[in-house]
Design a protein around this nucleic acid. Structure first.
Lengths: 230, 230
DNA sequence: ACATGTCTGGAACAAAGTTCCAGAATGGAT
DNA sequence: ATCCATTCTGGAACTTTGTTCCAGACATGT
């Protein structure tokens, strides 16, 4: 009787045996410590004290590895969400949960937008969309509203990841903001009046608060569409 | 007297001379015809009948090349926007202009989110934010509102680009949507009630209309914040 | 013991970005 | 007209990375 399954996690194997879980965990450590560009199969093999071929026995390719790492982080971020709150808070909590996860692991942002059909994104979509019913959004508008929320979230995720890619290790974020503000301020006020004006506000802005403000704008719009007479 | 500048575009040079413009134009052709993965310096050199070294004399690296190509497309997309319309229509027009550009050139989406500090994004930010003043959004909220609009746009851009990366050449988009709908429908209705419900709506949805609906949700929220008493 | 299927480690390959450099092309100075 | 410095070109070569291949170690059932 031949066991054809690949994933047999049999009982007695040496303790330091490779497994998809251990590989994903090591990948997350590398990504968090040294950024996206540091995750190579060679670095991973070195950290696991093995060869790249051994890794490929457990993981099909780099995309699958990244997706698994991303799922892992997102699943953890989604877990602690009480169902007891108001629906608008449910949306806020879900969004902030993902925001905080991306803040802690910027590479998740890259992965989320790189492959929007992966399970993690579907989960996020669910969490953002489910409360809309209770908010009184008509069925016909729920898809549009949830998609807009998701796009907002993914867009921010992408920008965050891009920022992390630019700033080598961690670096002082306020220095970076000051640089951008200077560049904005030096733009021609005739051609870019708005950006020129916003330059003054950039240095003391709070990413998280700004993100939440965006969510609230959405929710305000949704509420208006839900009961235009109220 | 030595001319130190690099960019002297002198008058008499042979007609088929390389230039950043010609290189960018060729890059756009390749990107549009065969997708992001087809743009390599070797392919570019082959199309321009030269070597990769010659290209590097005009362009610092691949990032700069992509940014230039992206700027080119975005600049064209922004051009035809009358200032005569209502401010809310100005926002819609700017957003739809970028949407249509991304629809025609999905690789622009990748580039926009990959480097959100590039000029093209600043331009978009300007066009999205400038009308907010006329909409009566208080100065303190304009930054938040414009950022939210930008994130929404970039998020959608990323998803569009991801879709184009997945579907090899052009392929029938409705086939793809049907596949995704099936996968959504096969999810556990207990765990993913919302996504499960949305599966039915997915096949006959319109990307552009959905994007515009998102913008309108935002504008509705912005209007509410602008004059909560009206 | 032996055979079979599972798993490992590292060599080897292919593709892509980038660097290097020898030399052609060009325009000004003598 | 000749020479020279500079600009520009073409392609070879280097480096890194994802991926494939494969020889063999390990464990298990007969």
């Amino acid at each position: 009787m031949v066991r054809m399954t690949t994933r047999t996690s049999r009982t007695g194997r040496r303790a330091d045996a490779l497994s998809k879980e251990r590989i994903v965990a090591a990948a997350i450590e590398i990504l968090d410590a040294d950024g996206e560009s540091a995750l190579t199969f060679r670095a991973l093999a070195a950290r696991l004290a093995t060869g790249s071929g051994a890794i490929y026995w457990h993981v099909a390719n780099k995309g699958e590895l990244l997706a698994a790492a991303c799922d892992d982080v997102v699943a953890r971020a989604m877990a602690p969400a009480g169902r007891s709150t108001r629906p608008s808070d449910a949306v806020r909590n879900a969004a902030l949960g993902v925001f905080d996860a991306i803040d802690a692991h910027p590479w998740v942002g890259t992965q989320l937008i790189a492959e929007p059909w992966q399970p993690a994104v579907v989960d996020i979509f669910e969490r953002l969309g489910a409360p809309l019913e209770e908010l009184g959004v008509p069925a016909s508008g729920q898809f549009d509203a949830a998609s807009a929320l998701l796009s907002h979230l993914l867009g921010l995720a992408g920008q965050y990841a891009a920022g992390a890619r630019l700033l080598p290790p961690d670096a002082d974020r306020s220095d970076f903001l000051r640089d951008v503000a200077e560049r904005w301020a030096s733009l021609d006020p005739e051609e870019h009046p708005f950006v020129h004006r916003m330059a003054a506000r950039l240095p003391r802005h709070d990413d998280r608060a700004q993100f939440l403000a965006g969510i609230d704008l959405f929710l305000a719009g949704v509420a208006g569409a839900a009961d235009p007479a109220a």
